[in-house]
Design a protein around this nucleic acid. Sequence first.
DNA 1: GTCTATAGCCAGATAGAC
DNA 2: GTCTATCTGGCTATAGAC
Lengths: 181, 181
Amino acid sequence: MREDTRTRIQEIALRLFTEQGYEATSLREIAEELGVTKAALYYHFKTKDDIVASLVDLRLADIEELLAWARSRPKTPQMRRELVERYAEYLRRTRHRGVARFLERNQTALRDHPTLIKIRERMMELPHEMSGPEATPVERISHSLALFGLHAGKWLALESELSEEEIHKATIEVAMRLIEP
Amino acid sequence: MREDTRTRIQEIALRLFTEQGYEATSLREIAEELGVTKAALYYHFKTKDDIVASLVDLRLADIEELLAWARSRPKTPQMRRELVERYAEYLRRTRHRGVARFLERNQTALRDHPTLIKIRERMMELPHEMSGPEATPVERISHSLALFGLHAGKWLALESELSEEEIHKATIEVAMRLIEP
DNA sequence: GTCTATAGCCAGATAGAC
DNA sequence: GTCTATCTGGCTATAGAC
């Protein structure tokens, strides 16, 4: 059941980049946790940036899939509800949740990263696909905030005594309220 | 009408920290924009961190004032509406808007900064002051998201053709909807 | 695949002249 | 208040042995 080194590097890097930030995490730290030297990392990844690329490529593909689905559908209340459900479900899958958090926390540090720029563009298009041309400003902001709240829920309620499941359900209900006509 | 050097350092640092991130901005860059050498900065601020401290202290004081006001009031729908208005107004004052954006974008890089930790704690208490002990999870999340949406509005609608004033009004209306009983 | 050793760079910070 | 000169140290990345 032994994982290969490449995967372990990704896991450790993802955790440290998320906890401490991309710039504040050195390859020395990653290597130390892995139990090898810095140089060994360079066998598996050409540069520090390559580690990031390997992490975010996945997420870009996921977002584009979701966006393609949204485009294939009419902009109805029913479609909006389904999009919220799909997006919430996607954010809950543990494999993606880590990458999503990593990106949330490193927007500024990675602002010039080509893949992240694409991800951001696609993310901006997602709420746009929820509103037809006749939508009011209030409706547009509401739709955006509905998706955004799905991200925010986790740390909005950090201090509270609510369980993860309660927060999940409440977050979705709030999102649904925001897309009601 | 000439500004003193200390103030100009704060302005340049705030802009660069916001655009590029705290860690990615070197004292050399700040000094170059100012037209002096790095060493000159050290006359005005003992460390790089001191520049940040001078920026965030103000914001902590503002938040604490708002929090004290909230605590002096009963947790009624009327109080919630007023808090949303006050918070939105506060975010609009240009002097504070810059610092708020700087903090939004450098949460991770400055995660251990003592003043930022306090600011974060106070910010978490703010939505807490909006809900009484009998509030449901959905209400709690809604109240949090109402305040949060006031921040998010600016860049949620970045790509759109809406004017700043339209976005402002729409954002407040969405927030008001979120705190309706 | 992993190692040692090191190049090359740039950061934050200080000393002391003017 | 600003300068020049310099220190110290960590960083990414590479070369080449095993």
